[in-house]
């Protein structure tokens, strides 16, 4: 298990080094999740693994090996398709766990 984690870590580091070498954003090359925020009204999450928690005030999304929690008011899932999720509402905070 530890060996597999180590291999994955090495792969990620290699992608990071290649991105640095090509002077492009790391997200363009690596398979890591990508979050885009428009003001505090909308967030687009790509590479989501699933919804862990969903209510009016909190939406918690599972990412690769972590999770991101959006807190706010009137939060909704505007769209959900495969590994992409769009959240809208009044986002007050974003927290990685």
């Amino acid at each position: 298990m530890a060996k597999r984690n180590q291999e994955r870590e090495n792969k990620k580091n290699a992608a990071g080094r290649l991105a640095e070498f090509l002077a492009v954003p790391q997200a363009a090359i690596s398979a890591e999740s990508h979050i885009e925020i428009r003001g505090n009204k909308e967030a687009i999450i790509e590479g989501a693994q699933g919804v862990l928690e969903y209510c009016d005030e909190t939406i918690k999304i599972s990412l690769d090996r972590k999770a991101v929690k959006f807190s706010g008011r009137s939060l909704n899932l505007k769209g959900m398709d495969g590994d992409s999720i769009i959240i809208d509402g009044f986002i007050l905070s974003i927290e990685f766990t």
């Binding site: 969903y54 209510c55 009016d56 909704n76 899932l77 505007k78 769209g79 959900m80 398709d81 495969g82």
Partner: peptide, 9 residues
């Protein structure tokens, strides 16, 4: 891969 949109809970 079922698309869902306009969700309100």
């Amino acid at each position: 891969r079922i698309g869902i949109w306009g969700a309100k809970k």
